[in-house]
Design a protein around this nucleic acid. Sequence first.
RNA 1: UGAGUGAACCGGGUGAUCGCGAAGGGUUGCCCUUUGAGGAAAGUCCGAGCUCCGCAGGGCAGGAUGCUGGGUAACACCCAGUGGAGGCGACUCUAAGGCUAGUGCCACAGAAACAUACCGCCCUGGUUGAGUUCUCUCUGCCAGGGUAAGGGUGAAACGGUGAGGUAAGAGCUCACCAGCGGUUAGGUGACUAAUCGGCUAGGUAAACCCCAUCCGGAGCAAGGUCAAAUAGGAAAGGAGAGGCUGCCCGUCUCGUUUGACUUUCGGGUUGACCGCAGGAGGCUUUAGGCAACUAAAGUCCCAGAUAGAUGAUCAUCCACGACAGAACUCGGCUUAUAGGUUCACUCAGACC
Length: 121
Amino acid sequence: MERLRNPREFSFVYKKGTPCFGRYVVVSALPNGKTASRVGFAVSKKLGTAVTRNKVRRRLKAIVQELTNQFSPGYDVVIGAKRSAVGASFADLKGDLRCTLKRSGLLEGAAGSAGSGEEHA
RNA sequence: UGAGUGAACCGGGUGAUCGCGAAGGGUUGCCCUUUGAGGAAAGUCCGAGCUCCGCAGGGCAGGAUGCUGGGUAACACCCAGUGGAGGCGACUCUAAGGCUAGUGCCACAGAAACAUACCGCCCUGGUUGAGUUCUCUCUGCCAGGGUAAGGGUGAAACGGUGAGGUAAGAGCUCACCAGCGGUUAGGUGACUAAUCGGCUAGGUAAACCCCAUCCGGAGCAAGGUCAAAUAGGAAAGGAGAGGCUGCCCGUCUCGUUUGACUUUCGGGUUGACCGCAGGAGGCUUUAGGCAACUAAAGUCCCAGAUAGAUGAUCAUCCACGACAGAACUCGGCUUAUAGGUUCACUCAGACC
């Protein structure tokens, strides 16, 4: 999955995109007119020290890696971590992110997933 | 065995699956190999390297350091010692130059906090009364004076203890102790020891200050190369503007008909590469040194990102994993840190 790197692209997605809030994450998405989707991660200093922020970002990256094949094409997506994500387990974080992405309409072919029990309201 | 002191070190391991950064190779949308955070990477508190600022000059101001000797590129760091404080001890702590250069401050209490007499003690004169009546003694009051022994206050009261001495007292005299100054001896030195002297000097410099030594500024977003793009703009002010830490001197650069510089408006870039990983580098041995450290030889190459690379899941073992993530690079300091290992030493008890 291609990464979103430029700071201008980040602010563009924040400004024009539609946010969707989950329990641990905030997902902002914007159609980019390309064939592939790109993903960026936003982990602010509010979450804690560098070690804590690294851990949250790496977990988010690992989850996105698993879901790469299910992503709808043609979107720029920014995944922001909320402060509650620090104490969440990997399984909780995974379920919340999948649920939030699905509500944003960014996941397709989710039927292949066996994890229906991980859904959060 | 128990209690303790001081150093050094480790900071979850192993295997499997899916992924990430860098380098190299095969060779082109992929595959393979190697490698990939810390003792503090942290705080950014000191010291340097490196880079730039038309080279850094003088004075004033300012800052830093502050027992001695050594180490180092340098330091506020380290090592070895000296003095002081604490501990039975191993050992630990110490901003530790100068209040006899000057000035300031010393709350409350107390008479007095730098020179002072509140109570007390003593003397002299006057006077009242009593004893006695030669003149002296005692008591009270008043005036003048002596006195820092005793009381009380305080963190601190003008050396301490003892003896002599005195009207009462006092380094007034003597002995010892403390402190000060000189001489001699030892030590590179801080200082120590002995001896002599006059007998006395409150504390505070983490109060101003004085003395000695040192200090140019800004920082890798330093700085440089390439590419791209627009423009070599317009208007107003204009004789001075800028650099060398702040001020002054001094000096340099640009400019005053070829318009420096300032303000406003308008236009453009907001990329890639170098710096950027071979270094005051690590390890081993030998030599010098009490040590910090230095020298020589051998050997090793050990992160280099730029929205920022180490994760997720499972199995298994145990003491069930703390603090915590490189961003130009080193040397230190400080702070955080679950648990564990090793060595040396001290004290107490038992046994021999």
